[in-house]
Design a binder for these strands. Structure first.
Length: 545
RNA sequence: GAGCUCGUAGCUCAGUAGGUAGAGCAACGCCCUUUUAAGGCGUGGGUCCUGGGUUCGAAUCCCAGCGAGCUCACCA
């Protein structure tokens, strides 16, 4: 519990103070405090009331809070109480609270919880303040608080000791208040449209619905290995087979992959399915949904993210091919012709020329701004990777997708829907009726990253079985992210899944966008951290003396 | 998994031509009845992340490890 002798010593001092507090007739750990108002109530109700009005009609309140600042002045003193993320000043003077009350005030420390009752007034500088008549001790902070001006700045400590972060950095608290608003708005949106909220298994015998490595666990009584789910997709579609035409689920997914500013091993996913809808319907719904959530959370569709103002009320829609042509960097030479995506040979030649052109530009260090140059070098390396994969025999659709990720995705700052994906990268999507090389699928982006993925669902059980078998082949070749066979899911499809559109949205990322958070860890209360080394202080202590 | 950067008091941070550590806040004592990053006087507090190495001497230089941040890779 203690990180140092300083903390141990402080703890002992505070315990002594608790004893003193008890001697004053107060409980060290009382069970409740009957507050008449929250701090928010007080500020909302009397925040604008003038000093004269407060004197003419005396208002008495009882409020509780944590002491975040304390300023003693001889036989009087101030303190700042914080409760519910808001602050209210109190004024304690000996002639108002009596000797016992003032003795208690002097035993208070930063971080303590107290309750006060008294009347409202304004100080000389105009600040709304409680003139305390009775002071009630509620709980003691036995450890010292972070520096009061800067708060807790150490990013690691903010994640590991979120409980301190939350009450010292109110900005951090605000992010999680907004996160709750995101969830509420999502539910409201779908509830109003007749979707049923459901909960499907988090522990699954077959971890399906996405390409990712799962976490493994074990049920003892049944002696059965289980996986934490990587997606709810296959269960939600079973429900549509069962006649729940519109369903949604907001819950955690678990993927045994790397950690980054955009990835946490457990993350929150919204998935929804709508019978009789296709991907065009979902595009429309998505644009409405994101704008609705933004307005519900921030009161505006505009959000500041990473130095950009993003307008979530205005979307553009591009096919993947159009997007590649539109975002093609001029430094990479001529844009690929619309037909260049159809043949592996033509496509490879185009890539080869682009690399050569980028290579040449990379040498001209004097003509180009350093930032743009770094960007172009990243693009060059990525294009080279795409070219290399393509030469090794990657299907052309896969290469087109990889190229898209290299030259387009990082630059999709304003909200954009990219649609018509190559079939090779979309094993659960339905092909376009007039173009079997492409599927009815879209992803949408903002702030430079992917927010969601949607498609018209494959509902042919024979085709689905075939695709699972192909995935098994990939698995045998060593791809441990390939889908597993799910016979029961194929059986469900065999009962008949109506034409259905489905979509998944990363709730953490949406929250990042709406709160201006650059790291996913800033929107997850307790992000996964590496195990800390055992502190020597905590376990030794008898080794030497 | 790779590259770069960082790790000094409870917290926020200073501290290199290598000479064994400092400020503010917090803590402790005293003064102060309208302060608000309150103020004044005084005091205590450090395995300088850990372990090696170089050196007469290491917070500082080198190596390894641990932890973190950023970028990249896998992925959403």
């Amino acid at each position: 519990m203690f990180d140092s002798e300083f903390e141990r010593g402080l703890f002992d001092l505070r315990r002594a103070k608790l004893t003193e507090i008890e001697k004053l007739g107060q409980a060290a750990y009382p069970n409740q405090f009957p507050a008449s108002h929250t701090v928010h109530d007080v500020r909302a109700t009397w925040g604008e009331t003038t000093s004269e009005e407060l004197e003419a009609n005396r208002v008495t309140v009882a409020v509780a809070g944590r002491i975040m600042a304390i300023r003693a002045q001889g036989k009087a003193g101030f303190a700042t109480l914080q409760q519910g993320g808001e602050r209210l000043q109190i004024y304690v003077r000996q002639d108002a609270v009596g000797e016992q009350g003032f003795a208690l005030y002097k035993l208070l420390d930063l971080g303590d919880h107290i309750g006060v009752s008294g009347y409202l007034f304004r100080t000389r500088t105009g600040e709304l303040t409680v003139h305390v008549e009775r002071l009630t001790f509620l709980a003691k902070a036995m450890l010292s608080l972070p520096e009061k001006y800067h708060g807790l700045a150490d990013v690691e400590l903010r994640y590991r000791q979120r409980y301190v972060d939350l009450f010292t950095n109110l900005d951090s608290r605000e992010v999680f208040v907004k996160r709750a608003k995101v969830l509420r708005a999502l539910r409201q949106f779908f509830d109003e449209r007749g979707y049923l909220e459901v909960e499907t298994p988090m522990m699954q015998q077959v971890a399906g619905g996405a390409a990712a490595r799962p976490f493994r666990t074990h049920h003892n009584a049944l002696d059965m290995d289980l996986f934490l789910r990587i997606a709810p997709e296959l269960y939600l579609k079973r429900l549509v087979v069962g006649g729940l035409d519109r369903v949604y689920e907001i819950n955690r997914n678990f993927r045994n992959e790397g950690i980054s500013t955009q990835h946490n091993p457990e993350f929150t996913m919204l998935e929804f399915y709508q019978a009789y809808a296709n991907y065009h319907d979902l595009m429309q719904l998505t644009e409405e949904l994101i704008e609705f959530v933004a307005r519900a959370v921030n009161g505006t569709a505009k959000t500041e993210f990473n130095g950009h103002t993003i307008d979530l009320a205005h979307w553009q829609r591009l096919t993947m091919r159009e997007a590649i042509r539109q975002f093609w960097p001029e430094e990479a030479g001529a844009k690929p012709a619309p037909t260049a995506f159809d043949s592996a040979q033509v496509f490879q030649a185009r890539l080869h020329a682009a690399i050569a052109s980028l290579e040449k530009v990379a040498g001209e260090t004097t003509r180009i701004a350093p930032e743009r140059l770094a960007e172009l070098k990243t693009v060059r390396d990525a294009v080279a990777g795409v070219y290399y994969d393509s030469m090794k025999g990657a299907p052309v659709g896969k290469s087109v997708y990889n190229l898209f990720e290299a030259v387009v995705e990082p630059f999709l700052i304003q909200p954009t829907i990219i649609y018509d994906y190559p079939v090779e990268v979309s094993p659960l999507s339905k092909a376009k009726p007039d173009d079997p090389a492409h599927v009815e699928r879209f992803e949408f982006f903002a702030g430079g990253f992917e927010l969601g993925n949607a498609f018209s669902e494959l509902n042919d059980p024979v085709e689905q079985h075939k695709r699972f078998e192909q995935q098994l082949g990939e698995r045998d070749r060593g791809d441990d992210e390939a889908h597993q066979m799910d016979e029961d899911y194929v059986r469900a499809l065999a009962y008949g899944l109506p034409p259905t559109g489905g979509e998944g949205i990363g709730v953490d990322r949406l929250t990042m966008l709406l709160t201006g958070s650059k790291s996913i860890r800033d929107v997850i209360l307790f992000p996964l951290m590496r195990k800390q080394q055992e502190s020597e202080n905590r376990d030794q202590g008898t080794g030497t003396n």
